[in-house]
């Protein structure tokens, strides 16, 4: 469905991703975890076209999309919800939902968005920027039901949100996976990410250090040590 092959990408002169291959298929729940600065956001921006693939390939539904523009990739069914700012803060909730629908289907957009997150009903005419963090994340996620994507990429789904809201968000993600949508979640916090995913990638310093089922990854303690000390050992051994 969606694949990145040996992708190299970065900003300006610095290379952040050093040959990363990942895959998300229909109805699959995938997590990418790793410490701060590992390149998780860069990875997700490279998948959706905000950053060019410098070498390697981006493949969507078996078609090479390495050189495609962001909006073309979006129309091909890739829905990226960026970290902390997946909404237009100055626009109303209603306007946000209608925009999410893109060029067609805006008539029923609000209806579909509210069916997923009925809590937003009473805020329809409110500016998105005045919603609470959790409500904003829900509005951002409503784009999934409004725009009918085949793959959803979420950057830091739970960052800065209260635990109750995080549970609700992961419930929602579980539902859309069962509907056959591929979901890739990037998380710094691993607890939820590991519980949710059927396949986990661990990213460290721009390279994959693990790819496989979450239960083979080892305990969370071990992962934490990897976060904090792995780098240190790695640097000492070089």
């Amino acid at each position: 469905m969606l694949e990145l092959r040996e992708a190299v990408a970065g900003y300006g002169d610095s290379t952040v991703l050093r040959g990363v291959s990942i895959e998300v298929s229909a109805g699959q729940a995938v997590s990418v975890v790793g410490p701060n600065g590992a390149g998780k956001t860069t990875l997700i921006r490279t998948i959706c076209g905000l950053l060019p693939v410098r070498s390697g390939a981006r493949i969507i539904d078996g078609v090479d999309a390495t050189a495609q523009s962001v909006h073309a990739i979006a129309r091909a069914g890739v829905c990226h919800i960026p970290e902390g700012r997946g909404v237009f803060p100055g626009l109303s909730v209603r306007d946000n939902m209608m925009l999410f629908a893109g060029s067609d289907g805006k008539r029923t957009a609000v209806e579909r968005g509210l069916s997923a997150f009925p809590q937003l009903t009473k805020h329809l005419n409110q500016r998105a920027g005045s919603l609470s963090g959790g409500q904003q994340q829900m509005l951002a996620l409503s784009r999934v039901v409004v725009s009918n994507p085949s793959v959803v990429l979420i950057d830091e789904a739970s960052l800065g949100l209260a635990p109750v809201i995080v549970d609700e968000i992961y419930d929602f993600l579980g539902r859309i996976v069962s509907e056959g949508i591929g979901v890739l979640v990037v998380e710094q916090y691993v607890t939820h990410a590991l519980r949710f995913a059927s396949h986990v990638y661990v990213l460290q310093r721009g390279a994959l250090v693990y790819s496989g089922a979450p239960n083979e990854l080892g305990s969370q303690e071990q992962l934490f040590e990897r976060y904090l000390e792995g780098d240190l050992e790695q640097s000492r051994s070089t």
Binding site: C48, L50, V70, H71, P82, R85, G86, V87, L99, G102
Partner: peptide, 9 residues
């Protein structure tokens, strides 16, 4: 950026 992510050029 977000606008292009929604598929509008």
């Amino acid at each position: 950026e977000l606008l292009s992510l929604t598929g509008l050029s």
